[in-house]
Amino acid sequence: MREVTVSAVSGAPVEVGLDASDAEMFAAVTERWRRRLADVWADRPDLVVLPEHAARPLASLDPRRMLPVEQIDDFTRTYGERLQGFFAALAAEHATHLAWSGYRVDDAGLLRNSTVVYGPDGNPMGAPYDKNYPTMPEMHRNHVAPGREMVVVDTPIGRLAPTICFDLNYTEALERLAAQRPDIILFSSAYHGGFMQQYWAYTARSWFIGAIHPPNLSEAYSPVGDKVASSTNYRYHFTKRINLDYRVCHIDEHAEAFADLKNRYGRRVKIHDPGRVGVVLITSEDPDLPLAEALETAGIVDVDDYFSRSITARNQTEIKPALLERGCSPLSASLSV
């Protein structure tokens, strides 16, 4: 068992007047997030995920009344580092990991839409993740430069994979991310994405924590696509304990092994069947029992290993024509592997 407590905290963007100064915008944004994050500190989360543009002020919640691009650019270049410092200090104050998402200026002077994971000491962990697939208005109007790498950040609590909003539409991004075997996908967004959240969680065999602007709900999904937590129309946050000592395994050829696993370890392991997809989520419920050890003892392989073996068998299998002899069914076949 390797449990961590995760929180997603969202809220409507901060509205400011068109004539607001950079200092006024900074004060409004930091005060808003100080109050919003106060909702989860009592739960002592190990990880907090914030939505896309967590610190970007708006002239109105109506997207047709945006602040001028030049004003946002100036605000980011003037107060961007101080804003990141504000969230870094909160991570250190509460000894947690905090995924901040918003505009930043990189070392080359380019504007990026990024997620930075701050550690319990307030320092950035790993490289910032730059949104790989900004929308066309972001690139053409706001001059946001796209990222090129899907980033996984190694931390003491697990392998964290930030993604941002429009990224969710691109299976190529998912494939690159899934190959790195993250433990938790951190989805900071202004749009929900619907069933694509479950698809990413299942395909990456990863927990999925979404922090999304209202009126959309922020939600969490298990590696088999079950919704396990959600914000509501009243509360723009949730906190959930998740178990990172897990494996996704296919049910085929594992019935006896699953029974053996339960008979050996009883309540020390949990086998959850979400139904309809042919896989189960197995977790160790005992901090002294590494799941990998238990699965090896029972002869259980994870779903990707099983699928790989199935592909190998397919490629090595020759189906011979049925022998149309007396008493031999036309459907009979000789199978050689």
Score class of each variant (00 low, 15 high):
residue 187 F to E: 03
residue 187 F to M: 11
residue 188 S to R: 06
residue 188 S to E: 02
residue 188 S to A: 10
residue 189 S to K: 05
residue 190 A to V: 14
residue 190 A to M: 12
residue 191 Y to C: 13
residue 192 H to M: 08
residue 192 H to L: 07
residue 192 H to W: 09
residue 193 G to V: 05
residue 194 G to Y: 15
residue 194 G to A: 10
residue 195 F to S: 14
residue 196 M to K: 14
residue 196 M to H: 04
residue 196 M to E: 13
residue 196 M to C: 11
residue 197 Q to L: 07
residue 198 Q to C: 14
residue 198 Q to P: 12
residue 198 Q to H: 09
residue 199 Y to L: 14
residue 199 Y to R: 13
residue 200 W to Q: 04
residue 200 W to N: 03
residue 201 A to G: 04
residue 202 Y to V: 09
residue 202 Y to L: 14
residue 203 T to P: 01
residue 203 T to W: 08
residue 204 A to N: 05
residue 204 A to L: 09
residue 204 A to K: 05
residue 207 W to E: 06
residue 208 F to A: 02
residue 208 F to R: 00
residue 209 I to A: 11
residue 210 G to T: 08
residue 210 G to W: 01
residue 210 G to F: 01
residue 211 A to M: 08
residue 211 A to N: 11
residue 212 I to C: 11
residue 212 I to G: 05
residue 213 H to F: 15
residue 213 H to P: 15
residue 213 H to Y: 14
residue 213 H to C: 15
residue 214 P to S: 08
residue 214 P to M: 07
residue 214 P to T: 03
residue 215 P to A: 06
residue 215 P to C: 10
residue 215 P to Y: 05
residue 216 N to G: 14
residue 216 N to R: 11
residue 218 S to P: 15
residue 218 S to E: 05
residue 219 E to N: 09
residue 220 A to Q: 03
residue 220 A to D: 02
residue 221 Y to V: 02
residue 221 Y to K: 00
residue 223 P to Y: 01
residue 223 P to H: 00
residue 223 P to V: 02
residue 224 V to I: 12
residue 226 D to C: 02
residue 227 K to L: 09
residue 227 K to V: 06
residue 228 V to I: 11
residue 229 A to K: 01
residue 229 A to T: 05
residue 230 S to Y: 03
residue 230 S to D: 09
residue 230 S to V: 06
residue 230 S to N: 04
residue 231 S to L: 10
residue 231 S to M: 12
residue 232 T to Y: 08
residue 232 T to G: 10
residue 233 N to I: 10
residue 235 R to S: 14
residue 236 Y to I: 05
residue 236 Y to F: 15
residue 238 F to M: 09
residue 238 F to V: 13
residue 239 T to V: 11
residue 239 T to G: 07
residue 239 T to R: 05
residue 239 T to M: 08
residue 242 I to W: 10
residue 242 I to V: 15
residue 245 D to V: 01
residue 246 Y to N: 01
residue 246 Y to P: 00
residue 246 Y to V: 01
residue 248 V to Q: 00
residue 251 I to Q: 08
residue 251 I to S: 08
residue 252 D to H: 13
residue 252 D to W: 12
residue 253 E to A: 15
residue 253 E to V: 13
residue 253 E to L: 11
residue 254 H to W: 01
residue 255 A to W: 11
residue 255 A to S: 14
residue 256 E to H: 06
residue 257 A to Q: 10
residue 258 F to P: 00
residue 259 A to E: 04
residue 259 A to G: 11
residue 260 D to Q: 13
residue 261 L to H: 00
residue 261 L to Q: 01
residue 262 K to I: 11
residue 264 R to K: 05
residue 264 R to P: 00
residue 264 R to F: 03
residue 265 Y to N: 02
residue 266 G to C: 09
residue 267 R to T: 13
residue 267 R to D: 15
residue 267 R to K: 13
